[in-house]
Amino acid sequence: MRRWLPPLAVIAALLGLWELAARWELIADALSIEPFLVPAPSDVAESLWTDRELLAENAWVTVQEVLLGFATAVAAGVTFAVALHLSAVLRRAFYPLLIASQTVPVIAIAPILVVWLGFGIGPKLAIIALVCFFPITVNTLDGLRSVDPELPRMMRTLDATRVQILRRVEIPAALPFLFSGAKIAAVISVIGAVFGEWSGADEGLGHLILVAQGQVQTARVFAAVVVLSALAIALFGLLALLERRYGWWLPGRARTA
């Protein structure tokens, strides 16, 4: 547990300074900090407790969006990466498009997606899947392509079919890469969910933030932000656990010896 101590100490120190700056009028006045603009950590903590039901209800909505959107992105990303890996023609045809898709500012097209897909969960899933798709696909494809070329050859001398090489060698070898991509995607998936909800929603943490902002309930805004961060960290942690179980071999470990 000793390794948790330094980060905890840093967080505690930062929160303490923030509390001091917001609470102590001498500093607050000097920095012209208004309580309704910058709530003290203790106000946020209070909001986390008093608004717990409101936060939980909306968090549940966002959790569903994030998990479904993320799962869609993983399924689509892995399928797409495998298809591009297996076919040089597909790779040449679609790789530029894959890059181009990432240059589209999702915030800009979010309102259009709402028009297309309605007010429900659809556009949120689409936005989350869009932002998560890229890191997952690109990493998985890199993983598939970085397989030691001697391994598929070895498998060919052992009567393996193309599909068996993919299943027994290439996909397991790409798993550590897939996990790297998925961890990046997990963190930005929550941002995608907030964009999605801002573009049109009547529930969810992003929606709650908008409403609380309108009512100048800044502490509640921050409380929702804390919950969103916790959500992203939890998803990241879950993936790190899965990685330890299913993707622990170092990329390229098969190369040595």
Partner: peptide, 30 residues
């Protein structure tokens, strides 16, 4: 390919498989 078994200079064991599963790759493929 169907007649020859080929062993390369490097062992090329798959790090995620147990030794016995590495050895038994050919029967699995069949």
């Amino acid at each position: 390919l169907a007649q020859c078994a080929y062993m390369a200079q490097r062992d090329l064991l798959l790090p995620w498989l147990a030794a016995i599963d590495n050895a038994a790759l050919a029967p699995r493929n069949r």
